[in-house]
Amino acid sequence: MTDQTMNATTSAASVRDYFELMKPRIMMLVVFTAAAGLVAAPSGIHWLTGAAALLAVALGSGAAGAINMWYDADIDSVMTRTSTRPLPAGRVQASDALSLGIFMSIMSVIIMTLATNWQAGALLAFSIFFYGVIYTMWLKRSTHQNIVIGGAAGAFPPVIGWAAVTGTMPVEAWALFLITFMWTPPHFWALSLVANKDYEKAGVPMLPVVKGASNTRLQILIYTILLLPVTLLPTAFGTGGYIYTAIAAVGGVVFLGFALKVFASKAGDLDMEAKDRKLALGMFAFSILYLALLFGALIVEHGFGLYFSSPNLAIWAGV
């Protein structure tokens, strides 16, 4: 790429291209889980401060996404799924993506610390560092456990939300962390089963590439089984009421059903059929809905006054 064309690509870059650098779909999920932590925390927060905290989380997530896109531009251009991203497509310059990522990282931490407290700001800074540096620059290309360890980065937001309100990070907040942490491997491996050729081509050591599809399907099942009791931890701690518990139970059974079907299928194998592919993608899609419903239930219960556990229900019913 010559300087002249680089100049031209920067000049033609649209606002949407820069927005795309921030991985908006991941950002939405991150903000959603942070909002759950924010409303589930046992204390109040001014609406403007809460909104500022969520904005800071969104900016932090976008910053980490931009840094990830900057660093992964080489492998993104090789993979079909990511080849149309702004950097590999040549719509945005690499240095612009990095500058945006660093600038937004700093701004997000400043806003979070000013609006709430240093604990939330510090955890936000650490989560950006974890995703942008530890996961993207180190784990992703060096170990097939990349998603397992790297999943922590996406699991921090509810703890950040909780810390923004209370200035503390108690075990109830870490239970919410654990849900996303345990959810990430089956979620991502379901997708990587159908995209393993892409990862192989790019030299990314995803589990199906290194250990094979059969082992990946087994790991998906194991992590899903482990996830089910973890989703019930908020009920045990009193963070989740009846609505949350019902969704966790029903959603968990459905998710386990997907995991069992994927385990019994040929998803990711060389002789994979269209129905196997559809099954793995179905599990991937449901996993997003499942997580959204879990954290959505917490938002509904705590944000809209619908939190009922056994004693609360008795008070509500006038007993």
Partner: peptide, 21 residues
């Protein structure tokens, strides 16, 4: 001149939108 070449109409438009944002 490589750095000073005149921008096209599309580039000017994109720059204007970026600045507004």
């Amino acid at each position: 001149n490589q750095y000073q070449r005149p921008l096209t109409a599309a580039e000017v438009n994109a720059r204007k939108k970026r600045n507004t944002a």
